[in-house]
Design a protein around this nucleic acid. Sequence first.
DNA 1: CTCCTTGCAAATTGTTTGCATACCT
DNA 2: AGGTATGCAAACAATTTGCAAGGAG
Lengths: 156, 156
Amino acid sequence: MEQKKTEDLLRRKLREKGLKVTHQRLLILSVLEQNSGRHMAAEDIYGLVTEEHPEIGLATVYRTLQLLWDMQLVDRINLDDGCVRYEIGHLLTDETKHNHHHLICRKCGRVIPFDADLLDELEDHIEEAAGFHVQDHEVKFYGLCSDCMKSEKSGC
Amino acid sequence: MEQKKTEDLLRRKLREKGLKVTHQRLLILSVLEQNSGRHMAAEDIYGLVTEEHPEIGLATVYRTLQLLWDMQLVDRINLDDGCVRYEIGHLLTDETKHNHHHLICRKCGRVIPFDADLLDELEDHIEEAAGFHVQDHEVKFYGLCSDCMKSEKSGC
DNA sequence: CTCCTTGCAAATTGTTTGCATACCT
DNA sequence: AGGTATGCAAACAATTTGCAAGGAG
């Protein structure tokens, strides 16, 4: 089961760093895994987590998300809506690279996911030219979605 | 002079939208232009602007930056340090595309600018496949800078 | 003269932090 | 036992907003 694999990885990484395996950490990661594909704000995660465990605090959610991000178990993206969003790490869900990008419409604000894999070349170039080891990336494209382009042309 | 050209563009765009040409708007854009290359937070810009015009309010700076961004006269980037940063729009400083990316070290937090132009192809693909008209992009690479890689290896 | 814009201050809101208690190992 | 992690509430900080006064067209 994927579920189990992810949990084991978290346990292992925590142990490596001398940190503790707590219910909260396991639960938060499992919620993220069960909602793979959604971009969840800390509040969203908090909402889901407290459904079953109302005693968990929002601060713990924030602290745990930071921790999971440091360990590269979750991905983070900022969609300019005032809060940081998280999803289960691409390293966990597939063996391929993280090529999930976002198109953000400047007019209606819609966020459209878009998959493409033209960045590997660029990352190799960066490693070589800058001596910087790339682990992940965040890519956003700003522009106009097809609907807004139509209304732009028709002059409304 | 570049300066003049930029100002004229702002005047024109404002008129087009029936908005007013104010000292504050001209001044803020000119400060951004004079500091091309820096990533400036609203507070930074406010600091520079109030040197000569202490009466200008911070809220006006925020409102103006939003406006300039909507008009595509400035670029916006979020470097995960808790504030949004601005710089003069790439459309104004050069005729080429916006290929100024950022490498962010997960260990020491350093931000390293990096120029490369491998995104045009991807943007064409997006226009075709998603019917989305790309105007701009924001790209961040997370990883380890060369210094932190050294200390990683030497085991400190 | 009309409506847009500004400055000020208060309000908002996502996120962080201090601290006493509870929990892993 | 010993240090880590948690929950709570207060603290923070960037950004936004309401409103009366000022300014552009």
